[in-house]
């Protein structure tokens, strides 16, 4: 098993031979394999890949959060619909709850839903764009370095 030098990040350049002493059961890494020369463009590609990966992960977290808010809004509008009592609803704005008539509340919910869906759409498009970029970089880098580089999560 090759020793991977970067537990913190996604893209790993293999370090040869370090675990020979630590684990003799493994055959020593092939030393005849000459190191592929890393060019400045390769370095750029690796950097871009790393950043794209970090950004994509951030985006995915944001998408999850937005999805949850949207679901909460759906639940809220359902609950608002089945409430019998007139003027029983309060809307949370910031830290306070404000008593509002039902139609104002449902209007607010619909408006928020529209806003969130648009934001979600935007985030998804951005994430797709990043994934595409990462796939391209992955193909190029694996073609260049093969087993010497590890770009898997």
């Amino acid at each position: 098993m090759p020793f991977l030098c970067k537990p913190s990040s996604h893209c790993k350049i293999r370090i040869e031979g370090r675990n020979q002493r630590e684990n003799s059961a493994h055959p020593p890494c092939s030393l005849t394999m000459s190191e592929e020369a890393v060019s400045a463009e390769d370095q750029d590609r690796i950097n871009t890949f790393n950043k794209a990966n970090i950004h994509n992960n951030e985006l995915l977290a944001k998408i999850e959060a937005k999805k949850k808010s949207l679901q909460d809004l759906e639940d809220a509008s359902e609950e608002a619909m089945i409430t019998m009592e007139a003027d029983a609803l309060m809307l949370r704005v910031g830290e306070c709850f404000i008593r509002l008539p039902e139609d104002a509340i449902s209007e607010h919910i619909e408006c928020e839903k529209g806003r969130l869906s648009a934001e979600l759409e935007h985030l998804r498009a951005e994430s797709d764009r990043l994934r595409e970029q990462m796939d391209q970089l992955k193909a190029t880098l694996y073609a260049r370095f093969g087993q010497q580089i590890n770009l898997e999560p």
């Binding site: 990040s9 350049i13 370090i15 031979g17 370090r18 190191e35 370095q43 690796i46 790393n50």
Partner: peptide, 24 residues
């Protein structure tokens, strides 16, 4: 910063690999 960190990580790996080659 991320670019610099990644570059340095690759540099560390390459210097290490180079040392292994010398030893071999």
């Amino acid at each position: 910063l991320r670019d610099q960190r990644t570059t340095t990580e690759v540099n560390v790996a390459r210097v290490h690999n180079h040392m292994v080659h010398i030893k071999a």
